[in-house]
Design a protein around this nucleic acid. Structure first.
Lengths: 194, 194
DNA sequence: GTCTATAGGGAGATAGAC
DNA sequence: GTCTATCTCCCTATAGAC
């Protein structure tokens, strides 16, 4: 079922998405034209339009899978009764998501065009649920600021060229420890193992 | 000297910059046209062109002052011999800069168009010097990640709508404490007073 | 300082041949 | 799946009147 004589529309679609992701990361969505995407693929605009009928469709196809994964992570919160494991699993989940998609995470969080599209997606609510988990109930100013710094800091750390020399596993470990240290200023709760 | 019969070219220029900042923050630089700026001001495109001859000029005028201030902060590092005061003054300086310019800070850090323009500006080197101060000499992975999270986290916290209800002073205090906590994992150095 | 008018080009998008 | 050709609209930018 995976290989067929006619590979149908798979390669072309994916080549569009790869080119689009590269260009979105470098120029932003508004700064990327369909002509630029076509040029990078070595085809014409019309060929791109054969795969995606609007630019918005391309944006959704690029960011959609990561948003769906974010929803899954948030939905898993309700299924875990133990507080500590719930916190740990969720934090590990979003760090994994960020590391897997690196450039994409920054686009979703910071590109104004994408942000507007995401506002209508279930992932938006999921993001709020995750943030609420991190701030805890009835958060004070300090907890709000810590959660905000983590949410932005994780994304930035995923893209930062200064961290390019770190392996995925190293980065994952440091991000987890650093985020946990910020989110659990509770005395008696030691930061996750270093 | 403050009020003259002819107010020269002050108001019109500043109205352009205000409108541009609003729109850059909402749509990104590439997503903002001169027509949008003119519409927001209630004038025509040509009136905008009378103040700034290119769109790039507007971008520079919007971000320039904040970049200049960043350079000043970095330059002050060399003039302070005491290590602790150097760290404290620099961190307080950039937090002040971020709070003063809130939306602008996010544009400078995350808009790809602005990022490309900033690459040729002295502020780029200043940013690296400040980061080096925060990581310390010969940083390990943990220190690099902490510095990256702070640099991104401070910016995000400055814009985050979830923090809108905090006063500037509250936000300043929490940002300082949280950033200091991340950047000084040294035992024996207590976080700045809460 | 602001306007009208316009040049010149690139944007997103469509039609239809191969 | 990809092409050529084309449409329409909006973009940046300029010229010149008021």
């Amino acid at each position: 079922m995976a290989e067929r004589g006619t590979r149908s529309d798979r390669p072309a679609r994916e080549r569009v998405l790869e080119a689009a992701l590269d260009l979105f990361a470098e120029h932003g969505v508004s700064g990327t034209s369909l002509q630029m995407i076509a040029d990078r693929m070595g085809v014409t605009k019309a060929a791109v339009y054969h795969q995606f009928h609007t630019k918005e469709d391309i944006v959704f196809a690029v960011v959609g899978p990561a948003l769906d994964r974010l929803v899954e992570i948030a939905d898993a919160i309700g299924g875990e009764p133990d507080q500590e494991r719930r916190f740990t699993a969720t934090l590990a989940g979003i760090i994994d998501l960020i590391i897997t998609h690196r450039r994409l995470a920054a686009i979703v969080q910071f590109d104004p065009m994408v942000a507007r599209l995401v506002r209508g997606h279930p992932a938006h609510a999921s993001f709020e649920r995750i943030r609420a988990l991190f701030t805890g109930p009835d958060p004070d100013g300090s907890a709000l600021v810590a959660a905000a710094m983590v949410s932005g800091g994780l994304i930035v750390a995923g893209v930062d060229p200064a961290l390019a020399r770190l392996s995925d596993d190293e980065l994952r470990k440091h991000l987890f420890d650093t985020a946990a240290r910020l989110l659990r200023p509770l005395p008696g709760v030691p930061p996750a193992t270093a």
